[in-house]
Nucleic acid binder design. Structure first.
Lengths: 344, 344
DNA sequence: CTGAAAGCGCTTACAG
DNA sequence: CTGAAAGCGCTTACAG
C-alpha cells in the first residue's frame, strides 16, 4: 500500500508540514534527529510523493512534450532518445507525440499536451502546409504560456528559440567538397522546397556554386520528396545531362541515385560523384560507402534541452535560433577528377 | 487564463457538482436548458479539466508507460508509433522510456514510471542479463498493482500477458523456404542466444531441418550479436564450409553476410541463398533485394494495446502470451537449386 | 522553530 | 433532482 505524508507524520510524531519540509530539504534549523527519523521512515516505506498532488499545488507537472513528424524516421528517434535522457537527468518526464506529418494532428497534439499540463514543449514541425494556413497556428504557439522550442524547423513569425543543424552550411560544404575535387557540372536533388531543411540545403548548394563562379543551371536541380524512389527518378532525369557529380539532399534519395546510376551502367565515383546528407547507418555499409553530411543529433538534443531549460528556469528569455555545424564525412562516393589519382 | 469548474458554476448559477456531472455526461434527468447552458460556457472558455486534480481524486492518470531497449532501433520506433496511436485513441497519453539495453536503467524506469502514477505499463525487455539476476525483478513486476504487458520478450516466471511475433515459426518458415528450394546445406547466423528472439528463431531453424530429416551441424550455426559486423564475421567463417544457403536471424547481419559473400567473389543468390528476418526498409532496395521474414509491427502494437486495455478496464485478467504470424517476403536473394530455373 | 489551516481543482457519496 | 461538504495528497503562507 502506498503511504502518504500523513502516515509518515503520524509515525514520526510531527506535523505534515515538518515532513514536507524535511523531505523537500527545506528544513533549516531542525534537530538532526528529527530529520533522520523522518527520512528513515520515508525510506522504510519507500515513500514517493504523489505526483498529481504535488502537481496540483505547485502547478508544475515536471513533464515536457515532444512532437515529431515521425518517430520512425531515424533522425527523430535519435533526437527523441537524446532529449529523453536530458529530461530524465533533470527530473522531467517526456511525453512523445507523433504528428504523422499531418499539421492537423500536430495542432491536436499541442492542445492535448497543453491540457495535460506539460511544463515545456519541443516541436519538430511537419512542413507540409502553406505558410498562410500556418499563421494562426503560429499565433497560438506564440501565446502559449510555457516555454517552447522549435527543432530542426521553423515557422514564419514564431517568437520562440530553436535549434537545428546549419543546413545551408551543410549544403555548402557538400557542394564545395565536390568543387574542390574539380567538379563543375554538379547537379542537385533537393527535397520538397516547402521544407525548411530542403530549402536551406539547396541555398547552400547555390552559394557554393556562386562563390566559385560556377553558373547554376535550372535543369541540373531536381526536386524530390526525400524518398528512395524520388531520388531514383530524379537521377534518371539528371543523367540525361552532362554531369559529373550530384549533391543529394538526403541519404535515402542518394541510395535511389546509386541505383539509377548503376542501372545506366555507370559507376560511382568514377563516372559520377555523390554526396548525401544525414549519414544514415546504411551509408557506411554500402558497396561504395557514401560521402555525406552528418548531423550531430545528440548535440542537437542537448542544445534543445538547454534552450528549453532556460525557459523552464525562467532565466533570460533567449529567442535565439542556434545552428549547429554539420560535418562532412568523406568516404568513397566522391572522386577527384583533376589529378589522375583516386578519391579525395 | 485557465478557467476552473468553479468559474463555470458561478457563471451558470449552479453548483460545481452540477457542472461536473454535466461535463462528465453523468447528468441524468436535468433540464436540457441547464445542460446546454453549462456546455456553452465551457466551450466559450475552452474549458479543460485540470488533469492533476482529476487524477488526484480518481486515482487514474490516464497515462501509460512504454519501456523499450532502444527507440533508435526501427523495430521499436514502429512499435512505439503504433502503441502511441492506440493510446491516444482511447484518451491515454504515452510516456516513452529508453532502457538503453541496460537492465539497471530498465528497473529505474519502472520505478520512475510507477512514481509518476502510470495506469499501465508495456515493456520490451532488454535481455542482457542472466536469468538469476532477473528473478527479483520479475518478483517486483509481478507485484505491480497496475496492468503490465510484455512486448516481444519474456522473463521466466512473469505472470503478465504478452505478445510477440511467433519467432520460432518465423525461423521455421525461413528455413523451410530454403529447403523447399532444394537446399540441404543450410547455415544459420543466430543472434545472442540469451535473447528471447534469437533463441526462438534458432529453434525454428532446427525444427525445419529436423522435420525434413536434414541433420543439423554445429559448425553451421554461428552466433552473432545482431550487428552488421557480426554478420560479416560469421559469414566469413561459415563460407569455409560447403554451404548453399544461410538463414540469418536479422536483416542487419544479413547485410554483413552480403558483403562477406561478395568479397569472396561469390554471388547471391547463385552461389548462396540468404533469408533474413525483420524486413528493414533497406532490404527492399539492396542491389539484390533480400528475402526475409516480416514482423507485422503495427499489429503487434494493436494486440499489445488490447491486452493492456483489458487489464485497464478490469476485464477478465488474461495471462495469455500471443504470438503473431510472421510473413515470408520472397525477393531475389534466394534461388531454387533443383531445377535449372531461376529463383522461387 | 513548529504546527494548524487553507487551498490547489476536481469528484462523489450524502442530505435535503 | 440539486447542492453543500468532504476528501484526494500535497505545499506554503501564517500564527503561535
Amino acid at each position: 500500500m502506498r503511504r502518504t505524508i500523513v502516515d509518515i507524520a503520524k509515525e514520526a510524531n510531527v506535523s505534515v508540514t515538518t515532513v514536507s519540509l524535511v523531505l523537500n530539504d527545506k528544513a533549516k534549523s531542525m534537530p538532526e534527529s528529527t530529520i533522520t527519523r523522518i527520512k528513515d521512515i520515508a525510506k522504510k516505506y519507500n515513500y514517493k510523493p504523489n505526483h498529481m498532488a504535488v502537481g496540483l499545488v505547485t502547478k508544475k507537472s515536471k513533464t515536457i512534450g515532444l512532437i515529431v513528424p515521425d518517430i520512425t524516421n531515424n533522425f527523430f528517434s535519435e533526437l527523441a532518445k537524446s532529449v529523453e535522457s536530458y529530461c530524465n537527468l533533470h527530473g522531467y518526464t517526456l511525453i512523445l507525440s507523433n504528428s504523422n506529418n499531418d499539421s492537423k494532428k500536430e495542432r491536436l497534439s499541442v492542445s492535448l499536451l497543453m491540457d495535460r499540463g506539460i511544463d515545456g514543449l519541443l516541436i519538430a514541425f511537419s512542413q507540409t502546409e502553406s505558410m498562410e494556413k500556418q499563421s494562426d497556428f503560429v499565433k497560438l504557439l506564440n501565446k502559449l504560456d510555457i516555454p517552447l522550442v522549435a527543432l530542426d524547423s521553423y515557422l514564419e513569425g514564431l517568437t520562440c528559440p530553436g535549434v537545428s543543424v546549419h543546413h545551408s552550411l551543410g549544403g555548402y560544404i557538400a557542394t564545395k567538397h565536390l568543387i574542390d575535387l574539380g567538379h563543375k557540372k554538379i547537379a542537385c536533388i533537393t527535397g520538397p522546397k516547402s521544407f525548411y531543411t530542403a530549402e536551406r540545403r539547396l541555398k547552400g548548394y547555390f552559394r557554393a556554386l556562386e562563390e566559385h563562379e560556377i553558373p547554376s543551371q535550372d535543369n541540373l536541380v531536381k526536386e524530390g520528396n526525400y524518398s528512395y524512389q524520388s531520388g531514383y527518378d530524379a537521377t534518371v532525369e539528371l543523367l540525361k545531362n552532362d554531369i559529373t557529380a550530384i549533391f543529394v539532399s538526403n541519404d535515402l534519395m542518394a541510395y535511389g541515385a546509386y541505383r539509377a546510376i548503376q542501372e545506366q551502367g555507370k559507376t560511382i565515383p568514377d563516372d559520377i560523384s555523390i554526396v548525401g546528407f544525414d549519414d544514415l547507418i546504411f551509408s557506411e555499409i554500402l558497396t561504395v560507402p557514401l560521402t555525406t553530411i552528418r548531423q550531430q543529433i545528440s548535440e542537437l538534443g542537448n542544445k534543445a534541452w538547454d534552450l528549453l531549460y532556460q525557459g523552464l528556469s525562467d532565466g533570460t528569455p533567449t529567442k535565439e535560433y542556434l545552428q549547429l555545424e554539420p560535418k562532412l564525412i568523406i568516404r568513397k562516393s566522391t572522386k577527384n577528377i583533376l589529378k589522375e589519382g583516386n578519391d579525395a
